[in-house]
Design a protein around this nucleic acid. Structure first.
Length: 678
DNA sequence: TGCTTTATAGTTTTT
DNA sequence: CTATAAAGCA
């Protein structure tokens, strides 16, 4: 059952696993067995006598952390595996801050604001701060704030407040603090701050973690690098070297637009001097036709660590570049071909994936796949956490845990309607701003209540009493927190109101199910953790990932996915569509000077394919309703001529056909007829 | 308070 | 074109 063997590794992988002391940079190309190396390195460390609780493995996403945990549990004693800390950057920061955030002036029960909460707050501040003729896009403001936090303008200088954006930033920060809340960037920022300003805190975490590993290092931003440095670097003068192993691939850095710094991996030696550098170049995923296409393309990037993927799997089929007359033909062609190939090559639908730059491109594909009755699943889309009822319940819960959390309080203060009008709410927020206290405190403030009608005051009393009562219930020792929430949903009439406002019974059922699912997962959480509601809310805030496919069609069908979301995944047969100038590379990237990142994006897409790969481009594409002429992506000229083959969809469709191909043509014909009829 | 109309913009997305 | 958000209306 359990166990691991270094004999299963190639020489480079083995070197990566065996290098346990000092800085280590593992340059792991696509499909080179990265996760295997990381988990085996952890197992190896433990086999060498390292206390598992001294090992920290940081990942970017929960999914990656979960996968690592699972794999490790198969290699070593599960009780040992459990002691290893495997966590995302943000979850690690929450752990640090829950202990010591009071040193920075927040209370221990701080709330974590997700992007939605953050946007709500920013919008509110903009409308309050902006003069009549001034306007500021809240999205722009959000990005500015995030950039500011990541670039270390920790505080705003007085001069910055003259601009609207500067003023909004300053007020946003101040307001978060009075709300006793932090956003995602703050988690990193404040963790770095508390570690750098408090030697005792730093020492404690130093003693805790002796061996650090960081996955997807090319995606780390400046604060994440600082955090790693802070945790890894032995105190000045001790002469020790940091045991920090990072794994990543600069060629797969595709998140620069949200703060990732490729320089973290490109200039690793500057941050951690004299590291051992191991390159993993043997690929276990793709054919050499695919790998050479990828290698040849990525060579065009100037700033990179040279790498050349190779495989012992043979050459494979050439990579097809298919020219299409327009995006309709592109979708139709691909749907038809998948229908055909699933028969002639007896390839199940789940072996196919269609990759694209923009979500909007999936629409036509969906239409065509549906017409041919080909099952498909779209990765991405709306998140479970964006659903109104889920946010409402979490807001109720947040109010019980942190009464200063105005954003949550305002969300539920009159949901369902309980006689607290928007007018009253506005008065209350104004009052709280003047008094520099939370809205909840204002509700019981006599001076404020004096300005209201008797009726309104009664409504407020009922609301406050309700929150107080459930808060007390929650804090009763041994109370079942999930049951308290469930009771609250009933008693406040929220559940009834939710069902009442649904147009269809199906909708009512699905919304109620969402609520019950959330409560169920809270019960599960209570079963495995003693952190209570606060811990559950942390986990919910930090697990924002989109849920996988809708129940029944799990893991079946053709995958439709963006290039970004496809990173880390693989499919036997890949169609990569829309290789047109302006789409890939995207127009905006030329404006912003990030064409290199677009090239890496295409590189990521190409290296998803195991056996066959087709790239397509259209001569016309419908944009904003009308057809626009397109030219093939400049990246196509960068591909190796001997490993690719150019085709044209129109010619293929007109060529004499085999029986199987004839079937697909019939399908297209039937589809066309159905379209005309419908 | 909830619904309809109108305006507007329009990559990529996890924590 | 079409999704979404804000504004206006009953």
């Amino acid at each position: 059952m359990s166990g691991f063997s270094l004999f299963d590794l190639n020489p480079e992988q083995e070197q990566a696993v065996r290098t346990t002391e000092g800085p280590l940079l593992i340059l792991a190309g696509a499909g080179t067995g990265k996760t295997r190396v990381i988990t085996m390195r952890v197992a190896f460390l433990i086999s060498q006598g390292v206390d598992p609780s001294h090992i920290l493995a940081v990942t970017f996403t929960n999914k990656a952390a979960d996968e690592m945990r699972e794999r490790l549990a198969k290699m070593i004693e599960p009780s040992q595996a459990k002691k290893v800390t495997m966590s995302t950057f943000h979850a690690l920061c929450v752990r640090i801050l829950r202990q010591d955030i009071e040193k920075l002036g927040w209370k221990k029960n701080f709330s974590i604001y997700d992007e939605g909460d953050q946007m709500g707050l920013i919008k509110k501040i903009i409308t309050r701060t902006a003069a009549k003729d001034e306007k500021l896009d809240p999205n722009v403001a959000k990005n500015l704030i995030s950039k500011a936090k990541n670039n270390g303008w920790r505080e705003v200088s007085p001069g910055d407040e003259k601009t609207l954006a500067g003023a909004v930033f300053a007020r946003y920060q101040a307001e978060l603090k009075t709300l006793n809340a932090v956003d995602f960037d703050d988690l990193l920022l404040l963790a770095v701050k508390v570690l750098s300003e408090h030697a005792d805190v730093r020492d404690r975490w130093h003693r805790r973690f002796r061996y650090l590993m960081v996955d997807e290092f090319q995606d780390t931003n400046r604060l994440q690098l600082e955090l790693v440095s802070m945790l890894a670097k032995p105190a000045e003068g001790t002469g020790g070297r940091p045991n920090v192993a990072v794994v990543g691939d600069d060629d797969q850095s595709i998140y620069g637009w949200r703060g990732a710094e490729v320089s973290n991996i490109l200039e690793f030696e500057a941050h951690f001097p004299d590291p051992v550098v191991v390159k993993l170049e043997q690929n276990y995923r793709s054919t050499n036709a695919i790998l050479n296409t990828a290698n040849f393309l990525i060579k065009n990037n100037p700033r990179r660590r040279p790498k050349k993927l190779w495989s012992s799997a043979g050459d494979g089929d050439k990579v097809r570049i298919v020219g299409m007359s327009d995006d309709r033909q592109e979708a139709e062609f691909i749907a038809n071909e998948i229908a055909q190939r699933s028969v002639t090559e007896s390839a199940p639908h789940e072996e196919f994936a269609i990759l694209f730059r923009m979500n909007a491109q999936s629409r036509l594909l969906e239409t065509n796949l549906r017409q041919l009755n080909i099952p498909y699943r779209i990765i991405g889309g709306k998140s479970f956490f964006d659903r109104r009822e889920v946010k409402d319940l979490l807001a109720y819960a947040n109010c019980l845990v942190n009464t200063d959390d105005d954003v949550s309080l305002l969300r539920i203060i009159n949901t369902p309607a309980r006689g607290i009008s928007s007018n009253t709410v506005e008065k209350a927020t104004d009052f709280s701003a003047k008094q520099k206290c939370s809205v909840f405190d204002v509700l019981t403030n006599e001076a404020f209540r004096g300005t209201l009608t008797k009726r309104t005051v009664e409504s407020l009393d009922r609301f406050v009493e309700m929150l107080d009562r459930f808060e007390t219930k929650l804090n009763t020792p041994l109370s079942d927190h999930a049951a308290v929430l469930r009771e609250m949903m009933k008693e406040t009439g929220y559940l009834d109101e939710l069902k009442r406002t649904c147009k269809t019974p199906q909708e009512a059922l699905s919304r109620e199910t969402n609520l019950m699912d959330l409560l169920k997962s809270f019960e599960d959480y209570q079963g495995r953790s003693s952190e209570g509601l606060r811990g559950f809310l942390d986990e919910m805030s930090l697990r924002q990932e989109r849920e996988e496919d809708d129940d029944d069609a799990r893991g079946t069908g053709v995958t439709l996915i963006t290039l970004h979301a496809a990173k880390g995944l693989e499919y036997p047969h890949v169609y990569l569509i829309g290789l047109e100038e302006g789409l890939l590379p995207h127009d905006r990237s030329k404006l912003e000077g990030t064409v290199d990142e677009e090239r890496r994006l295409l590189y990521v897409g190409i290296t998803r394919a195991r056996r066959t790969l087709a790239l397509s481009w259209c001569r016309h594409r419908i944009r904003y309703g009308s057809p626009m002429p397109c030219t093939p992506s400049s990246f196509i000229k960068e591909l190796p001529p001997e490993w690719i083959i150019h085709r044209d969809a129109t010619q293929i469709l007109q060529a004499p056909v085999s029986e199987a191909a004839a079937k697909s043509k019939f399908g297209a014909l039937r589809a066309a007829v159905e379209r005309a009829a419908g």
